[in-house]
Nucleic acid binder design. Structure first.
Length: 808
RNA sequence: GGGCGAGUGGUGGAAUUGGUAUACACGACGGACUUAAAAUCCGUUGCCUUAUUUUUUAUGGCUUGAGGGUUCGAGUCCCUCCUCGCCCACCA
């Protein structure tokens, strides 16, 4: 009896695989398959979630390779970002060194998975070889008008004097300073993602992604069709533009509400209300976004101005209120209190008129807004129309006098890409007093991020205080007072094209060779966490489309098929977190039980997209299985009395398992793949104990077993393969073909139901037709006994499946 | 408030996509091995019922969150409701 010692065994094979370089990516793929995992941030530790993602994706990659595909399965690091900068500030470490240390530590952990990665294909976004091309792409975007500068409302931290990303605002306070975050207008860089809003929306239909993710992207893009119309302000030559999806309710619009930040407020406010308006604006500006969303109160103040309802010519007071958001639509609404609950609350609070214009069928609109369907009333010439008809008619009526038009509105905003941060990709732009905004010439790329950097903890981008970096001669006119842009790019920019770079990661002349990128892309299967459902996946799609329009790519969608794995929870069923003390360290299990065990455990946990809590007792079940498996293959087989039936049963099971495993791996149903392997192993163990299999068939069966184990437990499979006398690696073999004729059973036991309940079963030849089966069933003694002489009303026969006898 | 998804034994889950519900495992119980324990191996294990019964084996009925529907047949399809999870959200 040999003992299964996974640690030595796995180390041995990992070393051999590396030395023999069996995982090199083919240079000229004839039959390419690109299997991609979302690259990790180099935090310094590979956690269980990474394992779940990478190890199981590796099984898919291995299966694809065995199927004969030319495989690209790379890994890299999303290595720009705030944690490195914080480490630099808090612990005085150099950000690049901290990052490099973490990457080398994570490479060791990644190698312990025993994955198929081609380490020559790796990349890090903070590597100048990489960000050279991020900058180059930015310049292409700038030249084509996709990148532009504009003022924007941003999260401003008044203590640190810096802009914060939304993710850096926690409960309305700055993550580091703890100060209440304000909104402020500042000049920022943007990508024109809204140009692609419709395409990003429409092409979702053609993607093999889960509906959930598609729906999240649709919500994010937030397309809505409506009308934009102008309301004249009394006594002023001004129009207030409003976006509405319910222009049919126009006659019921009794007041207007502007966002407190709206530009026109200044111009329309009457003197006696000015002080109150200013006070209110200040109050709202100091509110956190969270407060503003969560508070349900309908506070607001009157501006003293009146507008005119273009349909009824009624006078409409103009208010400002926090419940109208500056970013959406035009930042102003027409309020229809009878048919919108928010407007209703506001009207009730401020004593404003409520006019029913959609027939509520007697429900009334005094207590609450009537938001259901109905025909128009109190709407002059439009009375009696239904919703859609009314929308068209009213828009048409107002369009004739140029006061309304049909518009499409999106929730999606242009992508704000500049960050006042140090550890990011420098934006290759120069400001010159004489020439204005000057892009860095391509031959001067990359703009290298200075590694020697003083951090003084207090303020905005430390690059502003780096004289060598900041000041330079203008490349256009030579003026010596030119300054570099000190903002860096949002790290989502780095990760929006890394999958393209993998196809040609050593190219020093271009971001990628076009032939290569078009050969490998789009990605065959992209696997990663659901937390990237919107941002990363939307940005990567946008990048692909924009680059296709620049003529750099021949495809417009990067990821044909996407799977989001579930979350592995702590043993207590809660999300793992250091503060809860429920973090499971995969290294501990790998160093004790080996990679194959951790892989198989994670596979067997449940459906891949579901995740679930870590459970030690189940883990032991897996090591038990692998130990049994090891002894099944390695302990010698001693044939006894050969029995053809038993051998046939085993061979059948073997072929059925080959078929099942292939289907399951293709669909990422790892849990049932492992279950069917367990069934096969139990059966083989049983036959081995009995010694009823001929020597040749036994040996052959073990070879098949090793082959189908290869994607799942790659180390163990390799060990078995060698044990069986093979010289070449199991990972260079083809996926075995199953024999459909072997699987097909000549005789089947099918159930006999009476009135839908199983009462008996019968053994019939495979493929027997309805009449034959019916005759056999009726002749069956047990069936006759059950029928007690009653005549069947009807007999349903589904060949090879079931018989149902229907009695009255 | 809107969207998506889920609810199956003590537990994780499976179910050929409308055709034998509970595969595979964990746990539990019983047994073998052992001076003993661990490990390992073998057996039992949805619930209720009735009969026989130290062991044993049968009999009938019920069962996929609740209720209704379609169907010869529903975990699966349709309707209503309940609960949970995730995402979005004063979105005009």
């Amino acid at each position: 009896m040999q003992k299964y010692s996974p640690i030595e065994l796995e180390k041995k094979w990992q070393k051999i695989w590396e030395e023999t370089e069996i995982y090199q990516t083919p240079v000229d793929p004839k039959n390419p398959y690109y299997c991609l995992v979302m690259f990790p941030y180099p935090s310094g530790n590979l956690h269980v979630g990474h394992w779940y993602n990478f190890a199981l994706a590796d099984s898919l990659a291995r299966y694809k390779k065995m199927q004969g595909y030319d495989l690209l399965s790379p890994i890299g690091f999303d290595s720009f970002g705030l944690p490195a900068e914080n480490a630099a500030i808090k612990r005085g470490l150099a950000a690049d060194q901290w990052t490099a240390d973490n990457i080398s530590q994570m490479k060791v952990q990644l190698k312990s998975i025993g994955a198929i990665y081609d380490w020559d294909r790796t990349l890090s976004t903070s590597d100048p070889e990489y960000y050279h091309w991020t900058q180059w792409l930015f310049l292409q975007f700038y030249q084509s008008g996709q990148a532009y500068q504009s003022e924007a409302l941003v999260n401003w931290d008044p203590v640190d004097q810096t802009v914060l990303a939304n993710e850096q605002v926690v409960d309305g306070r700055g993550e580091r300073s703890g100060a209440l975050v304000e909104k402020k207008r500042l000049k920022q860089w943007f990508f024109r993602i809204t140009d692609y809003a419709d395409e990003l929306l429409d092409q979702l239909d053609n993607l093999d992604w889960h509906d959930n993710i598609k729906q999240m992207q649709r919500n994010w893009i937030g397309k809505s069709q409506g009308s934009q119309l102008g309301f004249a302000v009394k006594g002023k030559d001004l129009m207030i533009e409003v976006f509405t999806t319910r222009i049919d309710t126009l006659a019921g619009a009794t007041f207007l509400v502007l966002a407190p930040e709206h530009d026109l407020v200044e111009k329309i406010v009457e003197d006696q209300y000015r002080a109150k308006v200013k006070d209110y604006q200040k109050q709202v500006a100091s509110m956190t976004n969270l407060d503003r969303i969560q508070s349900d109160n309908k506070d607001g103040v009157f501006t003293g101005a009146y507008a005119v309802n273009p349909l009824t010519n009624q006078r409409m007071p103009v208010y400002i209120a926090e419940y109208v958001l500056p970013e959406y639509g035009t930042g102003a609404i027409m309020a229809v209190p009878a048919h919108d609950q928010r407007d209703h609350q506001f009207a009730t609070k401020h004593g404003l008129e409520i006019i029913e214009v959609i027939d509520s069928g007697g429900a009334g609109v005094e207590e609450q807004a009537y938001e259901d369907e109905g025909l128009l009333i109190n709407s002059e010439r439009f009375n009696g129309l239904a919703k859609e008809e009314a929308k068209r008619a009213i828009t048409q009526y107002l369009a004739d006098t140029n006061r309304a038009k049909l518009v499409t509105n999106y929730r999606l905003k242009d992508w704000l890409i500049s960050r006042q941060r140090y550890w990011g990709c420098p934006i290759p732009i120069i400001y010159c007093d004489k020439c204005g905004v000057v892009p860095v010439p391509e031959e001067d790329l990359p703009v290298i991020l200075p590694l020697e950097q003083e951090f003084d903890n207090a303020a905005d981008s430390p690059l502003k205080r780096h004289p060598d970096y900041l000041k330079l001669n203008c490349p256009a006119c030579g003026d010596s007072n030119a300054r570099r842009e000190t903002d860096t790019l949002d790290t989502f920019v780095d990760s929006s094209w890394y999958f393209l770079r993998y196809t040609d990661n050593h190219n020093s002349q271009q971001p990628f060779n076009q032939d290569k990128v078009n050969q490998w892309m789009p990605v065959g299967h992209y696997i990663g966490g659901i937390e990237h459902a919107v941002m990363h996946l939307l940005y990567a799609r946008y990048f692909t489309k924009a680059l296709a329009d620049l003529g750099l790519l021949e495809f417009r969608e990067p990821f044909k098929r996407l799977t989001n794995q579930g979350t592995i929870l702590g043993p207590d069923g809660q999300k793992m977190s250091k503060s809860k003390g429920n973090v499971v360290d995969p290294d501990q299990y790998v160093s004790q039980y080996g990679s194959d065990s951790v892989r198989t455990y994670l596979m067997f946990l449940g459906p891949f997209s579901q995740g679930g809590p870590w459970d030690d007792s189940r883990f032991e079940g897996i090591t038990r299985f692998l130990t049994r498996l090891y002894s099944l293959v390695v302990d010698p087989y001693e044939p006894g009395d050969f029995e053809a039936d038993q051998e046939m049963e085993m061979v059948q099971k073997l072929h059925a398992t080959i078929k099942k495993l292939g289907q399951d791996l293709e669909e990422l149903k790892f849990n049932t793949a492992v279950a069917s392997l367990m069934e096969l192993v139990s059966l083989m163990q049983d036959k081995k104990n009995q010694g009823v299999i001929s020597n040749d068939v036994w040996h052959q069966s073990l070879k098949y077993l090793s082959l189908i184990l290869a994607p799942i437990t790659p180390h163990l499979a390799e060990e078995f393969w060698q044990h069986l006398g093979e010289e070449q690696s199991v990972h260079l073999q083809g996926w075995p073909a199953y024999d459909p004729e072997v699987i097909e059973q000549t005789e089947l036991t099918i159930p006999i139901q009476i009135n839908g309940k199983k009462r008996s079963e019968i053994l019939v030849a495979q493929g027997l037709d309805r009449e034959e089966v019916t005759r056999l069933v009726l002749d069956n003694a047990r069936v006759q006994q059950l029928l007690e002489g009653r005549e069947p009303d009807k007999i349903i026969v589904v060949p090879d499946r079931i018989v149902n006898i229907v009695l009255d």
